[in-house]
Design a protein around this nucleic acid. Structure first.
Lengths: 132, 132
DNA sequence: CGTTTTCTTTACGTTCACGTCAACCTCACT
DNA sequence: AGTGAGGTTGACGTGAACGTAAAGAAAACG
């Protein structure tokens, strides 16, 4: 039975990151690989977290922001106060994400418009070329 | 008639950035304010570009990437080759944006699920509290 | 057994995106 | 003429997110 423990090299291949990055994330308490002697073994949980870390980065969040958000996806048994704080943080985060989605839609629309304009220009240039 | 020229202080207020940031962007050839004596005056074009810069940053693009993309929105009369290259860059960028949109939708869905779970936990805790 | 590979820690270096400070104009008041 | 507010150009500092090089342990291979 694959216990899901993954050595650092394999992790690097799967997620396309360097060993340094993984060690760095561990030092920042974003990942918690177990040890087999000296060596790190990353758990299923680490992989789930890493996926979220990389996604968070794409959206422009800092590692520290991500670290706080990760706890949201990592709630086992925690105090009500903590849960409330996490929920509130999530709400804030959600608002941010939805704003970002709106911005993104706008950006996509504008970019498409620009591309359409460029295409029009290109076809015009083309017919001009043909005319001369 | 407002010629649309805006001094640095006003720019900072409108876009919520520091003077340093604007000067930095100018040094990186992202903005091109005109000069009145020593002082910078930002044009309508600068404001349009700055808006795109700030949006680009939210999506995790580097200033250098943004600089290249800005040229897309800044095409006056350019050669066909340049136009083709710009169009191709736009296409690549668009793909990236749409991928990002998909990721974002996924992230939002997951976050909402987590929040729902947290809410369920909270109501459970609440009733437990009441029971004991 | 020695050697090569892979991992480790430690530590200093680097890039990006500005912040911060010094020293200097220059225009508006008074 | 003085004084202060707001602008300017360097130049050096800083925090985040790693890169990279050095030195050593440990597992794998011939």
């Amino acid at each position: 039975m694959t216990d899901g423990l993954m050595p650092i090299r394999k992790m690097c291949e799967v997620f396309d990151v360097t060993p340094r990055t993984l060690r760095f994330y561990e030092s920042k308490e974003l990942l918690f690989p177990v040890r087999e002697g000296q060596k790190r073994l990353f758990t299923r949980r680490d992989r789930a977290r890493l996926k979220l870390i990389l996604r968070g980065k794409r959206f422009g969040f800092s590692l520290e922001e991500i670290r706080q958000l990760l706890d949201l996806y990592d709630i086992g048994d925690r105090q009500e106060t903590q849960l409330r704080r996490a929920h509130e943080a999530a709400r804030t985060h959600l608002i941010d994400l939805e704003q970002q989605r709106a911005d993104l839609d706008e950006a996509i629309a504008e970019l498409k418009a620009q591309m359409a304009w460029a295409e029009a220009q290109l076809s015009r240039t083309c017919s001009n070329d043909a005319a001369e």
